[in-house]
């Protein structure tokens, strides 16, 4: 899609402003009653309980036991975050969670005609219910340490038709660690650079250049890079038929741009780009 830069920025700004306000109003305080979301509950049960707000205590409990699921009713699309095992014991899967997820989905629901859940949804890689959500987002994978069950769960998920977007890991050391792990999932498929003319870059918005999106802390520090990750890359793993299964955003942090889009000090160009990329990923994943 072609549009003038100003118009695009204005449109995304408008959407982001509404999204931030909406998320803030919807997010309950810590004194609100905690949601009832036991492991094993499905979409139907969640629907019956209604759309509960986010509770940080529940999130922490979820981190400890490694599962959390909060789909908000029977929607066509759930922004689903992969819960994976990390090497240092810290649940890096939950970085930016759930604020980034909610803000991003609010924008998505306003910008495109999609029936998307406005809430976060996190599922373990070794949970069979992951197959209920054909779109998966994972970040901070530089410390990922997959169990055999997670490897098999992710492999089967992707071979069945799931789509995984990787985000927010930086530098050669984290790349090497991630590559070693993802090789266990797909030893037979190479990781290749996704060319800029690939359909994923213009599924909805036309992306002409892969921009490096900084984490907010780094931006305040005056740089867009971390470690030795000076250049952003979008790489992919394709299946035997050339279908994109895994989209890897390396040396960039789209999630932070979604999370901090409401901060005036965070440049709009990064948020706009991150939202456009994210929407492209979703629409591509739902149609290709």
């Amino acid at each position: 899609m072609r549009s003038s830069g100003l118009a695009r920025i204005a449109l995304v700004t408008l959407a982001l402003s509404g999204a931030v306000l909406g998320v803030r109003l919807a997010t309950p305080s810590i004194s609100d009653p905690p949601p009832v979301a036991p492991p094993g509950s499905g979409i139907m049960a969640e629907q019956q309980r209604g759309q509960q707000g986010f509770d940080p205590r529940e999130m922490l409990r979820g981190r400890r036991r490694g599962t959390l699921q909060q789909p908000g009713g029977p929607h066509e699309f759930y922004f689903t975050r992969a819960i994976y095992s990390s090497g240092w014991g810290w649940s890096r899967w939950a970085t930016d969670y759930p604020k980034a997820d909610r803000q991003f989905m609010t924008v998505v629901n306003r910008l495109i005609d999609i029936d998307g859940s406005p809430y976060e949804n996190a599922v373990r890689l070794d949970d069979p219910r992951i197959r209920d959500f054909p779109f998966l987002y994972a970040l901070e994978v530089g410390d990922i340490s997959l169990s055999q069950a997670e490897i098999e769960g992710l492999r089967n998920y992707l071979l069945a038709g799931g789509f995984l977007v990787i985000d927010d890991f930086w530098g050669s050391w984290e790349w090497a660690a991630f590559e070693q792990q993802i090789r266990q999932v797909f030893p037979e498929h190479p990781i290749v650079e996704v060319p800029i003319d690939h359909p994923v870059f213009n599924a909805v918005y036309r992306i002409d250049e892969v921009m490096q999106v900084p984490a907010i802390g780094n931006y305040w520090g005056g740089r867009t890079w971390e470690r030795d990750g000076y250049e952003a890359h979008v790489r992919g793993i394709f299946d035997d038929k050339g279908r994109l299964m895994v989209l890897i955003n390396w040396n960039t942090d789209l999630g932070d741009a979604w999370e901090w889009a409401e901060r005036p000090e965070y440049p709009l160009k990064f948020s706009t780009f991150a939202v456009e990329m994210g929407i492209n990923f979703i629409v591509y994943a739902m149609s290709h």
Binding site: E76, F77, L111, I112, D113, I114, D115, P134, G161, A203, V204, K241, R243, I282, V283, A285, M286, S287, H288
Partner: peptide, 29 residues
């Protein structure tokens, strides 16, 4: 009329069928 996973999986289902051409028109906004 909207992004839906049915599109993706229907395409996958028939993509190897050399005798079916499913042209898709999908509204995104």
């Amino acid at each position: 009329g909207e992004p839906r996973f049915e599109v993706k999986f229907l395409r996958r289902a028939v993509e190897d069928d050399e005798n079916l051409q499913v042209a898709i028109l999908q509204r995104t906004a």
